[in-house]
């Protein structure tokens, strides 16, 4: 059994300034995003083709709708992979058009520092 270690990875202020951060923890690259007031940490590896997914656009999307209707929503809550354009829900890591998910880590903010467990 492996025990998780808490890593101090960034300052919240820097994350807010830059909009996102990609940090290195051991051999892994982790993308940090603040979504709706909460910090999310996702492995910078797309489950589809191993692209650096966390370098993709943070955006909204067209929500499920009726035929020929266009409903924009989830602004700044969607991460779009820079290679094949897969959309991931930044809150859950779920791919919007399939079963796959981003690998995520528990993130916490304490006294202006961002910690992740991995």
């Amino acid at each position: 059994m492996t025990t998780k270690t808490r890593h101090d990875v960034a300052s919240l202020e820097e994350l807010r300034e830059k909009g996102r951060l990609i940090v290195q923890v051991g051999k892994a690259e982790i993308g940090l995003f603040e979504v709706d007031g909460e910090v999310r940490a996702w492995r910078n590896l797309c489950p589809h083709a191993f692209a650096p997914v966390c370098e993709g656009r943070v955006c909204g999307t067209r929500l499920a709708s009726n035929v020929y209707e266009y409903v924009y929503g989830r602004d700044q809550e969607i991460l779009r992979c820079p290679w094949h354009g897969w959309e991931f829900d930044l809150k859950t890591g779920q791919h919007l058009a399939g079963e796959q998910k981003l690998r995520g880590y528990k993130a916490e903010v304490e006294e202006g520092r961002v910690y992740i467990e991995m």
Partner: peptide, 15 residues
């Protein structure tokens, strides 16, 4: 293609 371009046909609810 749908997996990357779903938002261009948001009315599709499955593959």
């Amino acid at each position: 293609n749908y997996k990357g371009l779903r938002d261009t046909v948001p009315w599709l609810k499955k593959l």
